[in-house]
């Protein structure tokens, strides 16, 4: 029998803590990375959206919000990623199983994406500037309010972006390309100075 197998972040060798880039003033942004405990995609059929929303609420306790508003309750995060499709994140390790029980094939589909995404977080005064330098979204607070999520990409790299605060975003990055993405965001942050924690 094998020893316990642990998750290893694809950024483990890159995201070394410290201060980088321009060090002449306060760092413009802070970067960090994390792996999800559970990240599951649920998608409803056109005639079962209400049923799926109920099922998600029964499992997570959180109610899906309209549009691209993110619902949060405790450690649960619900983000819309398309018509009738949401990402559900929490800190358990059996979310997929619970959702699959609640959402039968007649209601929708449940797909684990826990390993398919690696989360890169950016915060700080210049985070809008850094993100706008590579992602063609309007990051102003009016266009991208706190508590909303949007889908975009940095060149070929698909992104789900959740604004978690006035000056904070979580970016769910396709795992196999997260090193390329980290390379970009570190280069983009160097102009304003950044920390990695």
């Amino acid at each position: 029998m094998a020893d316990a197998i642990e998750k290893v972040s694809p950024l483990h060798a890159l995201a070394e803590p410290g201060r980088f880039g321009d060090t002449s003033g306060e760092p413009g942004v802070g970067l960090s990375e994390r792996l999800c405990d559970s990240l599951v995609q649920v998608q409803a059929w056109p005639d079962s959206i209400s049923a799926l929303k109920k099922a998600v609420k029964s499992v997570t306790g959180a109610s899906i919000k309209p549009g691209n508003a993110v619902a949060t309750k405790g450690d649960v995060v619900l983000m819309s990623t398309g018509p009738g499709r949401w990402l559900v994140e929490d800190e358990t390790d059996d979310l997929e199983v619970r959702l699959r029980k609640a959402i039968g094939a007649d209601i929708g589909a449940v797909t684990a994406l826990t390993h398919a995404r690696t989360v890169v977080s950016i915060s700080g005064e210049r985070c809008e500037w850094v993100l706008a330098s590579g992602i063609a979204l309007d990051f102003s607070a009016d266009a991208f309010p706190v508590g909303t999520a949007k889908l975009s990409h940095h060149h070929e790299i698909g992104l789900t972006i959740h604004r978690t605060g006035d000056q904070a975003f979580d970016l769910y990055v396709v795992t196999s390309m997260v090193r390329s993405f980290w390379g970009w965001i570190a280069r983009a942050s160097a102009e304003v100075g950044y920390t990695v924690s």
């Binding site: 094998a2 020893d3 826990t114 390993h115």
Partner: peptide, 16 residues
């Protein structure tokens, strides 16, 4: 297996 555990699976197979 889950991608973040891939190296662990590989190591276990190499050892076995």
């Amino acid at each position: 297996c889950g991608a973040h555990c891939g190296q662990g699976l590989w190591d276990a197979l190499m050892e076995a």
